[in-house]
Design a protein around this nucleic acid. Structure first.
Lengths: 126, 126
DNA sequence: CAGTATCCCTGTGGATACTG
DNA sequence: CAGTATCCACAGGGATACTG
């Protein structure tokens, strides 16, 4: 009984975190979500708004986001070349998180730069 | 001037999001952070608390989190086999985000299950 | 415009064995 | 206890070219 408190954690929570990262993980998911957040709806607009993304990556990631019901893909009934991506209601509950991640990322960058920790990184972020 | 509003997005924000996902991305980072959040401090405790993680993955990810200054590694001056991982102050500002991600992950899971979208996933999460 | 198709490379992660 | 070392598989991602 004198055993030091072995803290257990909720396995469901671990699973939830892994699910979350599975859905929004990878290099492009958050930027794409953010771009749509900002009002971009069409493929080429989203593509142009995100520096460095390729059509292939955009296409794949849009599909995955659609599979995970974060966005919907709508084809214009008259002009089938007009396709618009929009958030689902479910995804909108997520917007706040994104803003926080942006904030956190910026703060983090400042910190890392200030502390001159760049050398220790195998794969520097910046 | 009749051009439809081409929405631009803040490139710095995109970068911040990519930095964030770089730091906390991958399968194990969030679970590890969460485990430490829950009070686990030592290697073996953390390892046991996260289902499926291997020593290799834990070791690597702890090191990366340390490089990114989210945690500190403290060696007991008397017992060098006692090593404790703790959050930096910087990382604590992050706790709230984690709780939100757990929440979101759980909600998302419910939704996906309800909508019977599982079949459409190439790599089912659940 | 809104994507596919190919090819190729790297990094992440898993399995297993070993160590100060 | 707290890790390394090795080997290997696969998915994510980049470059480039092509299409309805």
């Amino acid at each position: 009984m004198a055993e030091s408190a072995k803290t257990k954690i909720d396995k469901d929570d671990v699973q939830a975190l892994q699910d979350t990262i599975y859905v929004i993980g990878g290099k492009w998911k958050l930027p794409i979500i953010y771009s749509i957040c900002c009002g971009n709806k069409r493929f080429t607009d989203i593509e142009r708004s995100i520096p460095g993304i390729t059509t292939r990556m955009l296409s794949r990631n849009l599909k995955e986001l659609e599979d995970n019901m974060l966005i919907t893909r709508k084809v214009d009934p008259d002009f089938t070349t007009i396709i618009e991506y929009e958030f689902t209601e479910h995804a909108k509950a997520y917007g706040n998180l994104i803003l926080q991640m942006i904030d956190w990322g910026k703060q983090h960058k400042q910190l890392i730069i200030k502390e001159n920790r760049l050398q220790k990184q195998k794969t520097p972020i910046f």
